[in-house]
């Protein structure tokens, strides 16, 4: 089962590639905060980025600009019909 909401990065803890203390991000969506692992994410995020999360792990990072762009693209398409 997949989680549709991208979650916003509030804080990044730890270093890339550390398996003893895997890196984490504190993320937020709909007023709730949680920690997610960053071991398998495609691009190491920084504060303000959004993360697509699966089973407690971030799987994809997108910037706010990319997030907005994807929504805009869809809106454009809807307008065009």
């Amino acid at each position: 089962m997949c989680l549709a909401i991208p979650m916003k990065v509030l804080e990044v803890k730890g270093e890339e590639g550390d398996f003893l203390n895997p890196p984490l991000a504190v993320v937020e969506a709909s007023g709730l905060k949680k920690e997610v692992r960053l071991d398998i994410v495609d691009r190491f995020p920084s504060e303000g980025d959004f993360l697509i999360v699966h089973a407690g792990f971030a799987i994809h990072t997108l910037s706010e600009a990319e997030a907005k762009e994807s929504l805009k693209a869809l809106e454009e398409m809807a307008k065009g019909v």
């Binding site: 549709a4 909401i5 991208p6 997030a67 869809l74 809106e75 809807a78 307008k79 019909v81």
Partner: peptide, 24 residues
Amino acid sequence: MFEIDSGFKDKELSRALLRGIEKE
């Protein structure tokens, strides 16, 4: 704050896409 998920749940957006589907 920019709410990314609500945009994709938007009613108007869905309606417009549905009209597109009807047309195609």
